[in-house]
Structure formats: C-alpha cells, structure tokens
Amino acid sequence: MNNNIYSLQEDRVIDYYINSPGVSKAKKQALRSIKSALLSDFRVYKLLGQLGQFHQVASKISTISESDSSTLELLYGSYLSKSGVRKDIFSNELICPGCQYSYATLRSTLDHFLPSSNYPNFYVFPLNLIPTCGDCNRIKNDVIPMSKNDNLPHPYFDKKLFNKHWLKIEISQVSPLKYSFNVRDELSTNDIYKVLNHLISYELEDTLFVHVDSIFEQNDEDLKDIFDTCGERGVREYILMLKQGSYISPASENFVPLNLEYAFFDALYQSDWFCNQYYMD
C-alpha cells in the first residue's frame, strides 16, 4: 500500500466542485454550508479508523439531508474523476484487497468502505474509497459493523494486518485429500475477528477451496511420481521447494495476506501423514 493516500486533500473534490464553472450559486452555497461538518466527520472517520472502531461512527457524525446526499452523490459520480482524485486513489493499490486475486485498475470499481447508502458523509472522502474488483464490490455491498467484533480490516488503517499471512490450512488424514481453513494462531483476537468478517463479507470460502483444489490438481501427479521414485524425503523436499517459491515477502508490493499457494504448501510440508502415506498404494 502506497502511503500517498494519506496525502490526498480531504476536501479536494468538494473544492473542485465549488470552484467549477457551470455550477449554480445555490448548489455551491449548499455545499459550503455543510463543508465544515463534513470535515469534522472526516476527522472522526480517521480517528475511528486508527482505533479500529468503525462500529461507533453512526453516533459521532453529522446528519446529511436527502438534498445534500444527492449533491454528494453527484460529486462522486461526476467530479471524482474530473478532480483527479480517482486516478490518485488507484495509484495506491495494485490488487483488489477483497479477494486479493483480481487486479485493481482504473477499470475497476471503488468500494465505499462505509457504504454511501448509510453514510453519504463519506461519498468523496478519499480514505473511504477502496479500489476493488467489481465482484467484490457487489458481494460486500452494504456491510455495516454494528459492534466491535463486526469490524472489517481496512486496507488503509490496518496496514500491519495486511502485511501478515492470515490463513493456515490443516490437512485431514483421509484420501482423497481433504483440508480445512483456519486463521493463523499468531494473530490477535481482534485481528482474528476482522479476518473472519472479511472472509464472510466477501463470501470467499468457496473461492478459497476452488483455488486450493486447483493448486493440488496441478501438482498431484508430480508429487505421486516423486513419491514412487524418491519416497517421503523426495516429496518433502519438492514441497519445500514449492513453498519457498510461493513465498512473497511482506515488504513486496505483490504481497497478499491470502497467499493460498504458500499456506497450502506449508500445510503439506508440515503433514507427516501426507508426505509418508498419502501416495502409498
């Protein structure tokens, strides 16, 4: 994540609209009248984001009228791009933080982390706009945290969490191969809730199984051949090579917390049963 997102002027889109020719004086004045309240709401957002307490936002921000909400929606639809803010936001992210699989490009969508249908205050607030693939944006939709344990990980505020591996895979001692997903033990309780909420909100469980099944299918035949010729030691060495090859450093811009290849090969490597017995006739 590029830190430039924090340097974006909070009211840049608002000021661009106010200073744009062709906008009626009445609309400019209406926006000026709520600008101070919006800036206060933005400060609340940043504070709660730093604390991981977005469930408290509803009680701490101003009330937006339907008319002002429509104006802010117009700013998002027509002036976010014109002001250059949309392009600047997309320059901060390469991969969709939802599925962590699809690329987030200018052709992708912007997800309102706190949904605009409930919080129009943040329609054009840069820190509420997350580059997201269309599928993830549609699936997440209007998820709202109602309690501390409902919060999702925020790509801009939970950078430490987004620089950690989230999942571990546990191999069951049955054939054909079966496995299960779990959250890594080293994560804090609060972070575990966030990761689980992320998986649920983006409906990722089935997708995770599909991807891991595909990874295994791509390597199953080679692993069997190696077991038949080199035994357990050869299998373990080959899996270690795959595990090391799939590792991505958290310092890399390509790192994603849901690195399924690394989690799966690590699980196979740690499973004495798989390395010793899975391919026995």
Rank of each mutant, 00 (worst) to 15 (best):
K28C: 00
M241V: 12
D88F: 01
P97M: 07
L51E: 12
Y179T: 11
A263C: 09
D220I: 12
K35D: 00
S36Q: 11
T105P: 11
D41R: 03
L75M: 07
I192M: 13
R32D: 14
Q277N: 15
I144K: 04
P176E: 13
L208A: 01
Y238W: 14
S67I: 14
G234E: 02
P131E: 03
T71S: 08
Y247K: 02
Y76T: 13
Y269V: 00
F209D: 02
V235T: 08
V143H: 03
K168A: 04
R32F: 12
A263D: 05
S81T: 15
L161C: 05
E186A: 09
C96K: 04
K28A: 06
F54V: 02
F255M: 04
D41N: 11
K87M: 07
L110M: 13
E253K: 09
D228P: 06
C133A: 09
N254T: 08
S7Y: 14
E253G: 11
L223M: 11
V183D: 02
Q29T: 15
K168L: 06
L204R: 07
L242R: 03
F181A: 01
N163P: 09
L223R: 06
Y6K: 11
T207C: 04
F216R: 08
A263N: 01
L39I: 12
K35P: 10
E73M: 11
N259S: 02
R184N: 10
D281L: 11
W273G: 09
C136Q: 06
F42C: 05
L152N: 03
T63P: 05
E217Q: 15
L75S: 05
C133N: 05
N128T: 00
I139V: 15
A37G: 04
D266Y: 07
T229M: 11
S172I: 13
V85N: 01
L94D: 14
M241G: 14
I14N: 01
